[in-house]
Amino acid sequence: MDTMFAIVCKTYEGVKALETYDKEGCIIKSSGLHGLGASIGRTIHDRPHADEFVADDPQRRLDILKPRLPNGESPPGFLGFTVNMIDVESKN
Rank of each mutant, 00 (worst) to 15 (best):
T3F: 14
D57K: 05
H45K: 11
Y21C: 00
I7V: 15
T11S: 10
V8Y: 08
A17M: 07
P76H: 03
P67T: 01
H49M: 02
K66N: 12
T82N: 07
K23R: 10
I27C: 05
E19G: 07
V88Y: 12
R60Q: 13
G14Y: 05
E52T: 14
V83T: 05
R42W: 09
V83R: 01
G32Q: 03
Y21F: 10
A6T: 12
A6H: 10
P58W: 01
A38Q: 09
I40C: 11
D2E: 13
P48H: 08
I64V: 02
C26L: 14
M4E: 15
E73R: 11
D87S: 12
T82E: 07
T3W: 14
S39E: 05
S39Y: 04
D22I: 00
F78D: 00
D22S: 02
R47Q: 13
D56V: 08
L62F: 15
V54R: 05
K23S: 10
G37R: 01
G41T: 03
G32P: 04
E89T: 07
N71K: 03
L18N: 05
A55V: 12
D22C: 00
H45F: 13
K16H: 14
L69C: 01
F81G: 01
G41M: 02
G32Y: 04
R60A: 09
L33E: 07
S31V: 10
K16W: 13
A50V: 11
D56P: 04
L33T: 07
G25E: 03
F81I: 01
C26F: 11
K10E: 13
H45C: 09
K16N: 13
T82K: 05
Q59P: 06
G72P: 06
